[in-house]
Amino acid sequence: MNITFYNVTDSPNKLEKDITHVIGSARALAPTGQINVLNPVVTVAWDNVNGDSIINANYAYIDTFQRYYWINCGIDTAKRIIVSGKVDYLMTYAADIKKCPATIVRAELTKPTYVPDNKYPIHPNKFIFEGVDFNTAPDFYSGTEHYVVITR
């Protein structure tokens, strides 16, 4: 079970993480019990790798499980690194997810669309009042008064 350690700065809800910052890799020590694939806890010997770096890693890939994990590292009394992981299902299945059809109700567009957005911060009590005058005026007043008298 090889574990590759990374430092990732991407938001957890980013589909594909930037894993270019590789810290190192290590082989996990033989497990003493059952390992949960989604939330694994594995042990890595301190001396195998640069322990100072791994202890600060926040992301890992475990080849056996073929999954990426957000991890927390600790040290036990024997100075072994205890790696606790939580699967990153987004990164793990990014390739497949990208092929998924979906109905997207919000997206990072540059401007609003015609779909009403009740979260949009519209001012509650200020408005734009626009007056559009019509362009053809009948002959009103013309500077004098007008009376109409109808006789027979």
């Binding site: 990208k98 059809p101 979906a102 919000r106 990072e108 979260k119």
Partner: peptide
């Protein structure tokens, strides 16, 4: 995210997608 109604593949989107 701006409200929208887009039917597409996730891979064709970019940025925040809900």
């Amino acid at each position: 995210g701006h409200a929208c109604c887009i039917n597409n593949l996730i891979g064709n989107m970019s940025g925040l997608t809900v």
